[in-house]
């Protein structure tokens, strides 16, 4: 996917994690939403990413995996997951992006043998609204990927504690 930013030069062994994270994103969207995601980048002209789902990781790998998107994208995801109209899917959007984030995190860690058995996931947390700042104490760098879902931007970021 284009629009990928890596900031973990201090962990050369984790260079291979980015394609695994992208693969997990693709697999979750294909299997659970029945759609393909496209490579994408975030620009200033795109709508605010006012929904964020967070899943904590603890154990061998400690950090946070987050998924950010606009509320319109969150509704679209819920609509695709549940095969409902956008109006009917609206109340489920938080639950839907929380589950998607959880599945991406689980799928990602299952691809790395040393994480699979020794890294646990938290129950997802979802925040919606524009007037917030998300500040993670993770200080070990991050792996970022961005993609488009029917033209709308979505980002997935893994922030890691050192």
């Amino acid at each position: 996917m284009k629009g990928v930013k890596q900031s973990h030069a201090e962990w050369p062994e984790r260079e291979s994690w980015l394609p695994l994270l992208e693969l997990s994103v693709r697999e979750v969207y294909e299997r659970m939403l029945g759609c393909q995601v496209e490579p994408g980048i975030i620009t200033d002209t795109q709508p605010a990413l006012d929904c964020i789902a967070l899943v904590g990781l603890t154990g061998t790998l400690r950090g946070v995996l987050s998924l950010r998107c606009s509320s319109a994208s969150a509704i679209l995801m819920a609509s695709k997951m549940l095969e409902l109209s956008a109006g009917d899917a609206d109340p489920q959007m938080g639950d839907a992006i929380g589950e998607i984030c959880n599945m991406i995190a689980g799928n990602f860690k299952s691809r790395i043998p040393e994480l699979s058995d020794r890294c646990m996931l938290s129950v997802p947390t979802v925040i919606a609204g524009e007037d917030y700042t998300c500040h993670s104490l993770a200080d070990g760098g991050s792996i970022d990927t961005a993609f488009l879902l029917e033209g709308s931007p979505v980002t997935v970021t893994l922030q890691v504690h050192s």
Partner: peptide, 8 residues
């Protein structure tokens, strides 16, 4: 049904 696919 789980995302926790670990062996344990």
């Amino acid at each position: 049904i789980t995302t926790e696919g670990s062996e344990s």
